[in-house]
Amino acid sequence: MDRILLEATDRSPKVDFDFAGGRFALEGEAYPEDAAAFFGPLLQGLKQHVQAQPAAAIRFDVALSYFNSSSAKALMNLFMVLEEAAAAGAAVAIGWHYQEGDDSLQEAGEDFSADFTHARFEMIETPA
C-alpha cells in the first residue's frame, strides 16, 4: 500500500503510515473539523494492511499533545484493529508518548492500555 504522509495542520496531527516498513505515527494536535473524514482513510488503510499482511510486525507511535473526544473515538477504532492483529499473531507494539507532568495524557494512555492484552503498549514519557 502507498504510504500515507500528511503534514500537521493547526488542528490535525502529522501522519506517517509507512505500510511497507510497518511503522505508523501520529504527532501533534487532533481536533479536526471533521474527525470522520480525517481518520476514516487512516482506519481503512490500517484495516487493509492488516488483512493483506496479517503476520507483519507493526510499530505504532502516538505523540499527541491534545485530542478531542471525536479523535479519542477514532484512536480507539485504530487500536481495536491493532489489538485484533496482535491477537491473530502479529507482533504489535504501541508507543504512547506524553510530556512529563501532563496528567491528562498520561491517564488517557493508561486508559487505552487497559484494552490491550495481546499488543504491547508502552508508556513513553518525554522530558518537559
Binding site: 481536533y31 491534545y66 478531542n68 507532568g101 501532563d102 496528567d103 491528562s104
Partner: peptide, 16 residues
C-alpha cells in the same frame, strides 16, 4: 498548564 489544557478541552467539547 494542566488547568489551561482542561479549560481548552472543555471549551472545545462544549463548542462542538
Amino acid at each position: 498548564t494542566g488547568i489551561a489544557k482542561r479549560v481548552f478541552s472543555i471549551f472545545v467539547e462544549q463548542a462542538q
